[in-house]
Simulated scan of single mutants.
Amino acid sequence: MRQAKIKTNQGSLTAVLFEEEAPITVDNFCDLAESGFYNGLRFFKHIPDILVQAGCPFNNGTGGAGYFIKTEMAGLQQEHKKGTLSMVHGTHHSNSSQFMICLDDAFVHSFDSNYTCFGLVKPSDFEVLRKLRKGDQIEHIDIEYFNANQ
Score class of each variant (00 low, 15 high):
R130W: 11
K131R: 06
L13E: 02
G61V: 05
S35A: 15
D105Q: 02
N114F: 09
T91V: 12
S110R: 15
S96C: 09
E21Q: 08
S113Y: 13
S110C: 15
L32T: 11
F68L: 13
K7F: 15
Q150Y: 12
Q3R: 15
L132W: 00
G61F: 07
L132Y: 00
N149D: 14
M100Q: 13
I6M: 02
P123N: 11
A33E: 08
M1T: 10
H92G: 13
N149S: 13
K70V: 09
L32N: 11
V108I: 07
Y67H: 07
Y145H: 14
P23N: 01
D136M: 00
N9G: 00
F107M: 14
S97W: 10
N28F: 06
A65L: 08
G66E: 09
Q98S: 11
F44I: 04
I143Q: 05
K134T: 03
D104S: 14
K7A: 12
A106W: 09
F107H: 15
E79W: 05
A148S: 12
G75M: 03
L32R: 10
I141C: 05
S94I: 07
C56S: 15
F99S: 07
A148K: 12
K70L: 11
S94Q: 10
F43E: 00
F146N: 04
K70Y: 08
N9T: 01
S86G: 09
C117N: 07
G83V: 01
N39Y: 09
F29A: 04
H140G: 09
Y115T: 08
D27T: 13
S110I: 14
G64F: 09
E72D: 04
N39L: 08
F44G: 03
M87G: 09
D142V: 14
F126K: 08
L13G: 04
I143C: 09
L103Y: 04
G119M: 02
G11E: 04
G40H: 02
